[in-house]
């Protein structure tokens, strides 16, 4: 791959890969390792990509796979508590901090679909393709995640509806 092209990809996709990885492993150091791993794989990738969107989907898919591999390996690090890490993000509003911690407290199988849906704005169909899972599974994960997040973000509403 051309150096300049690769440098562009690094600038364009590092944060995306980091976010996908972080939603999976909730650990800054491991997420950074995954960023490097994915970008190195991209550098070595022989095939021609059809479009920018093709590259984006490729890096997301590989990031998901690399995250799964890491979680299966014995290569774990001590992680900084999430509350502590959240403070380094300079979240301006209290609701941002609440949302961040609430999303991170979701079960792992919900976090990546939630990220892909709300941040990357992929459809359920596209997410199911990226994660190699059924559309109904993605839809269920999103619905359950929304309920949990609603309860965390609007506890007064939960009280009023008596849930």
């Amino acid at each position: 791959m051309e150096e300049e092209q690769f440098a562009q990809y690094v600038r364009r996709y590092s944060d995306t890969i980091y976010r996908v990885a972080f939603h999976s492993c909730k650990n800054a150091a491991d997420s950074q390792d995954i960023v490097q791993n994915v970008l190195l794989k991209l550098y070595r990738e022989q095939k021609e990509f059809e479009s920018e969107e093709h590259v984006r989907r490729w890096v997301i898919r590989v990031a998901v796979n690399e995250s799964k591999k890491l979680l299966c390996s014995a290569w774990f690090r001590k992680s900084v508590p999430l509350e502590e890490y959240a403070q380094t993000l300079e979240l301006e509003e209290p609701e941002e901090s609440t949302l961040f911690l609430s999303v991170m407290s979701l079960p792992k199988k919900y976090r990546v679909p939630v990220y892909l849906y709300y941040y990357e704005e992929y459809s359920v169909r596209e997410i199911s393709s990226l994660l190699h899972t059924k559309e109904s599974t993605v839809a269920t994960c999103l619905e359950r995640a929304r309920k949990k997040l609603r309860a965390a973000l609007c506890p007064e509403q939960k009280e009023q509806t008596g849930e």
């Binding site: 590092s14 944060d15 980091y18 976010r19 950074q32 961040f100 941040y119």
Partner: peptide, 15 residues
Amino acid sequence: FQKTFSKLRASPDTG
């Protein structure tokens, strides 16, 4: 969601 998670960024030394 986007405003919150846009703050999640890879290390500036990645490149």
